[in-house]
Design a protein around this nucleic acid. Structure first.
Length: 195
DNA sequence: AGCGTGATCTTT
DNA sequence: AAGATCACGCTG
């Protein structure tokens, strides 16, 4: 299967948020353990005027990875428990990222079930904190990129527009009016909405 | 519907 | 130094 190259990520964040749907995210662990998931839900965070974006006030120690080149991984820790996985977008020195909110397991389900302590397939990666746990993604992954043997994304045919839904982003208190969440309609692995 | 959990950011 | 917030998941 063909891998997405650097140039694929050179898109405006909102467009990338949509184009990543359906693509296969791959994580290879030591011992050649292959974990794969189909991306089914994403959100855009990129504007300096969007108070929900970590970088809206400028660069800090936490968000500095958001200013790096497209295809870099921005992983941060929140709520004392969870890691969030983002793919950096926008040219270097312009902050932007796509939050990966949910995936459909494609390979490595047994490992994911162990990591998650759950057997139900639709429960393994149906949320941003769940999927990082399932894929053993933590702060050590922050700043790595998708052009290595450890992390990459496989290409798939583009999805028809009628399969793609749009809504407000989940779990934020600011900028609720921006419709910057994209998801695959009727896919059972999409996360549940929270107010 | 309520709470745990701890890093980060803002305000004092 | 203290207080608030948080791109969440789990229990009930």
């Amino acid at each position: 299967m063909e891998r997405l190259e650097r140039q694929f990520y050179d898109l405006p964040t909102l467009e990338l948020t949509e184009k990543l749907l359906g693509k296969i995210f791959v994580r290879v662990l030591p011992g050649n353990i292959q974990l794969k998931g189909r991306i089914v839900e994403t959100e855009a965070y990129f504007s300096r005027h969007d108070e929900a974006c970590h970088a809206w006030r400028g660069k800090t120690e936490r968000n500095r990875i958001m200013f790096q080149t497209p295809g870099t991984l921005y992983v941060y820790f929140t709520y004392g428990n969870h890691y969030m996985l983002n793919i950096v977008s926008e040219p270097e020195n312009t902050p932007g990222a796509v939050l990966i909110r949910a995936m459909e397991p494609v390979e490595g389900e047994l490992f994911m079930q162990e990591q998650r302590g759950s057997k139900l397939i639709t429960d393994l990666m149906s949320g941003p904190g769940k999927l990082t746990r399932a894929l053993a993604i933590n702060r050590e992954c922050n700043g790595k990129n998708l052009f290595s043997e450890e992390f990459f994304v496989e290409n798939t045919p583009p999805l028809p527009d009628r399969m793609i839904g749009t809504s407000a982003r989940v779990g934020i208190s600011k900028s609720r009016e921006l419709l910057w969440r994209k998801f695959i309609i009727n896919n059972p692995h999409v996360s549940k909405f929270r107010t």
